Amino acid sequence: MPIEGATIDVTFYGVRGSTPCHGPEVSRYGGNTSCVAVDVPGHDPIMFDLGTGSRYLGVERSTEGFHADCFVSHLHWDHIQGLPFFPPLLAPGNRLDLYAPRPERHESVADVIDTILCPPLFPVGVADLPGEVVFHDLGNDEVRIGDVTVTSRYIPHIGRTLGYRVDWNGISVAYLSDHQQPGVDVYDMCPGVEALCRDVDLLIHDAQYTRDEFIQRSTWGHCTIDYAIWTGKAAGAKQVALFHHDPMHDDRMLDQVASVCGRHCTPNVVVAREGLTIQLGA
């Protein structure tokens, strides 16, 4: 039965794309790479991606008996580089269930991580961490976590990439951190994107480039701010959070985006920043 008045919280711990950045010019929106937490009443945290922002999530929430389910969009470095620095994994008895797309050139997600986290690239492997990491390979799937449904669908990017949708108690969140726009001024969406985004309460979407930047980088696997907003509107999303900001987009530039979106955009559009919590439901 639906729980009347129940809400979920979506908190941003890392909002930057490609590489972390630092300095006073990005201090307000943040410079950590992708990590978002979805808090559903009565459930362990559901995480999207393990970029450098995940370290701050772990510092805030690291407790004895910690457990979380983390859905990784793809295995590019900026989305997993927080894994060996995730504080809960430094304590025995803690566990992270990590879900990610089935790799094309390796046997499993665990195999990919083992090739990255090992000497000489890194001093220790996953098996050396005191906490436990359990790997799950995903494709076009549905995962049940208690009474939460997490849907995964392949979406266009470079290499196998998943978008995700969380549904609970009539509330829904879609997460498409890296999404290749079909072309300059081409507005279309594939069936997987449509399935994830249709009528969601919140769409978190790649918004890495301006139109002029996209013209120069049209094959780099990302999209424009305009395309992110169009996707939300075309899919009937109630709210769009612009995400995966380019490292060169400083606070002043993102303020300008937020100002224009606040005046002219439908649906409601926010520019994601570290520390922002959006409450959905009720």
Results as ranks from 00 to 15, higher is better:
residue 24 P to M: 05
residue 215 I to M: 10
residue 180 Q to V: 10
residue 193 V to F: 02
residue 226 D to C: 08
residue 103 P to C: 07
residue 155 I to L: 13
residue 7 T to P: 01
residue 270 V to Y: 00
residue 24 P to Q: 06
residue 89 L to D: 04
residue 170 G to P: 06
residue 47 M to F: 10
residue 145 I to R: 08
residue 136 H to Y: 02
residue 169 N to Y: 05
residue 191 P to W: 10
residue 109 V to N: 07
residue 241 A to S: 12
residue 145 I to G: 02
residue 243 F to Y: 15
residue 21 C to T: 15
residue 274 E to I: 12
residue 104 E to S: 10
residue 128 D to G: 08
residue 209 Y to K: 00
residue 173 V to R: 01
residue 78 D to V: 08
residue 22 H to Y: 12
residue 4 E to C: 04
residue 186 V to W: 00
residue 113 I to Y: 07
residue 27 S to V: 14
residue 127 A to L: 03
residue 254 L to Y: 03
residue 276 L to Q: 09
residue 153 R to F: 04
residue 234 A to L: 06
residue 101 P to W: 03
residue 5 G to T: 04
residue 109 V to T: 07
residue 281 G to T: 09
residue 259 S to N: 05
residue 61 R to L: 15
residue 182 P to E: 06
residue 193 V to D: 10
residue 253 M to A: 14
residue 223 C to T: 13
residue 240 V to Y: 06
residue 152 S to D: 05
residue 203 L to F: 01
residue 50 L to N: 07
residue 104 E to D: 12
residue 149 T to L: 14
residue 150 V to H: 05
residue 90 L to T: 04
residue 198 R to L: 08
residue 238 K to D: 07
residue 251 D to L: 03
residue 228 A to Y: 04
residue 132 E to W: 00
residue 76 H to S: 15
residue 213 E to W: 09
residue 106 H to R: 06
residue 219 T to W: 09
residue 204 I to Y: 02
residue 161 T to E: 06
residue 79 H to C: 09
residue 125 G to V: 02
residue 40 V to T: 12
residue 182 P to Q: 07
residue 239 Q to Y: 01
residue 100 A to F: 06
residue 127 A to K: 06
residue 269 V to D: 08
residue 231 T to Q: 13
residue 125 G to A: 04
residue 72 V to M: 05
residue 240 V to G: 08
residue 64 E to Q: 14
residue 132 E to N: 05
residue 202 L to K: 02
residue 267 P to R: 08
residue 154 Y to P: 08
residue 236 G to R: 03
residue 154 Y to V: 13
residue 99 Y to L: 01
residue 51 G to S: 08
residue 77 W to N: 15
residue 256 Q to I: 09
residue 269 V to L: 04
residue 167 D to V: 06
residue 227 Y to F: 15
residue 122 F to A: 11
residue 110 A to W: 01
residue 36 V to K: 10
residue 245 H to Q: 13
residue 114 D to P: 00
residue 282 A to W: 03
residue 83 L to H: 05
residue 257 V to H: 13
residue 263 R to C: 08
residue 40 V to C: 11
residue 234 A to H: 06
residue 4 E to R: 07
residue 98 L to F: 00
residue 164 Y to Q: 05
residue 194 E to L: 09
residue 136 H to M: 00
residue 273 R to G: 11
residue 78 D to M: 13
residue 226 D to M: 07
residue 164 Y to A: 07
residue 96 L to E: 06
residue 144 R to V: 09
residue 65 G to C: 14
residue 188 D to N: 11
residue 102 R to T: 12
residue 91 A to W: 10
residue 279 Q to A: 14
residue 118 C to G: 10
residue 25 E to N: 11
residue 75 L to R: 13
residue 189 M to L: 13
residue 50 L to E: 11
residue 120 P to S: 09
residue 115 T to A: 05
residue 60 E to S: 15
residue 183 G to V: 11
residue 228 A to E: 06
residue 47 M to E: 03
residue 173 V to H: 04
residue 56 Y to N: 13
residue 164 Y to P: 06
residue 224 T to V: 10
residue 227 Y to N: 10
residue 56 Y to A: 15
residue 189 M to V: 10
residue 98 L to C: 00
residue 166 V to C: 13
residue 69 D to E: 11
residue 167 D to I: 03
residue 168 W to S: 03
residue 53 G to Q: 08
residue 234 A to K: 11
residue 1 M to V: 12
residue 92 P to I: 09
residue 243 F to T: 03
residue 29 Y to D: 01
residue 25 E to P: 07
residue 242 L to A: 06
residue 9 D to M: 07
